[in-house]
Design a protein around this nucleic acid. Sequence first.
DNA 1: AGCCAGGAAAGCG
DNA 2: CGCTTTCATGGC
Length: 298
Amino acid sequence: MKGIGATARIAVEDFDLEATLHSGQVFHWEPHGEGGFIGTVGSIPLWLAQPERDALEVTAGGEAVAKAYLGLGDDMREIWGSFPGEDETLRRAVAFSPGLRIVRQPAWECLATFITSSLKQVAHIRQISLALRRRFGERHLLRGRDVHEYPAPETLAAAGETALRECGMGYRAKSLHRAALRLAQGEASLEDLAGLESNAELHEALCRFHGVGDKIANCVMLFGFGRLNSFPVDVWMSRVLRRNYSAVAGEKTTPSRVQEFADDHFGPYGGYAQQYLFHHARCGREPKGSDGRVEGRV
DNA sequence: AGCCAGGAAAGCG
DNA sequence: CGCTTTCATGGC
């Protein structure tokens, strides 16, 4: 376990690194060394591993960053305790992966990544994210391997839409470039957005970025701004909710009605509920690979 | 208010 | 190997 750079060990409880990094919240962590993962948080390169259930290993010096990023300060008893009592669907999803945490990503890389995520599957989003990082991101050497930061708004603004398009994101290049320009030119500030106390105001402000609608705004609020009540509704969540909750059963339930139900039903930690349900729906029945042909079953 | 373009790749037969 | 499916947003 030694030899490739110093690591620190952090005691953890109710934590699952693999599930946390591979549940559609963040898309750039790559397997590296002894079951670990390598990547960056902002400008900080990190290697992470969970050699035992109760231990997290992290690049020495990165302990505080890792703890914050991985949501290790969250009080899971309080969060689980806040969930609706009679909800068997949610109870099963939590039991399936109780160690899942909501990550706290730097706002820009979260916003940018989710702008490139629209109408894409997880594997595609990974490719786009890694291509952008390799081509435009600051490079670090860690454990004998190159890792790249997510490129800053100024970098992507200067790169131009065409160069972004070459990273495989198609028409999303326009939205990403416009967002980078807005921030680089100071027309918007993510620090200012972080200061908005009102979730509704933050949601509105995020939707002013081209390419950001209701769903992506909710993802950024949850994974990039730590607003744990945000409940992103994508096609997966729509299916899960309509199949399991009589209040929104039926194909013709409108997305906004589904959203309204979720916000009300799951409460102040709805974002956690969403992530448990999402992960269970995607990974709970098929071993791997397939995105899940679960239609027609209950 | 509902319809549809738009981009790339994973999954299927 | 080629055909189908997957996906959220915005603009009409």
